[in-house]
Simulated scan of single mutants.
Amino acid sequence: MKKLTLSTIATAGLLLASSSVMVMANAIETSSYKMVLIEDTPGVDAIQSGDIDEGIALTKAAATSVIDQYTRNLNLCVGYTKLSKFDIAEEACTEAVEMADRADKLPSMQMRAYAYNNRGVMKLLAKDNVGALADFKKAAKATHEPIYKHNLSRLVAELNNTETGTL
């Protein structure tokens, strides 16, 4: 596995409407929840533009010298989630979480936040509200970027909605 370095992390930006903070990824909307993709990697432009199958194919076909396994899994997590292929998405999401948990300390908190956030959105869309809540809490704890607080507070508000009692 190619090791994600601090310079790799510093090369991309997170685009949030509510924040000018620059970090390594690009937030995309999946329903009313935001997921994170690693910019400038094979397949990301296609996923962002809605050509999910092409984005997944490009991500999977990329050589390991071009894309590391963490980034590959993180982006596949988003792609498969957008296709509602939750079994495959969960495998990719969980692999990204496990890789982030094993990463070197300096970049690992942001990596963990990305991975837990994306897995949380996937779980939510797969109707695992408890799992999604746990992952959103871990993402928000890892780093205090607005995207994680947005997803966590939105889910908590929806879970507390007494009018419908459901999401």
Rank of each mutant, 00 (worst) to 15 (best):
A96Y: 02
T94V: 03
D45K: 15
A25T: 13
A25M: 10
A103F: 11
Y114H: 14
D68R: 00
T64M: 11
E95H: 06
K34T: 07
Y70F: 14
N75I: 05
K105L: 13
I88F: 09
L74V: 09
S65H: 03
A63G: 12
G55I: 04
N117D: 15
A89K: 01
K85V: 04
I28C: 13
M111Y: 10
Q69N: 09
D87G: 10
L74G: 06
D101C: 07
T81L: 09
N75R: 05
Q110C: 13
E29V: 06
A57G: 03
D87F: 07
A115C: 04
I47W: 02
I52R: 03
S84M: 07
G43Y: 08
I56L: 11
E95Q: 12
L106Y: 08
D101Y: 10
G43V: 02
Y114W: 15
S31L: 04
A92R: 05
A113F: 04
P42Q: 08
A115Q: 02
E91F: 08
L83S: 06
L58G: 06
A92N: 13
Q110M: 15
R72M: 12
A115G: 09
A27N: 15
R72V: 02
V44S: 08
A89P: 07
D40V: 05
N75S: 06
R102K: 12
S65M: 03
T71Q: 07
A62N: 03
Y116D: 00
V36T: 11
G79M: 05
A100W: 08
K60A: 11
A115D: 01
A103Q: 11
D51T: 12
D87W: 04
C93G: 01
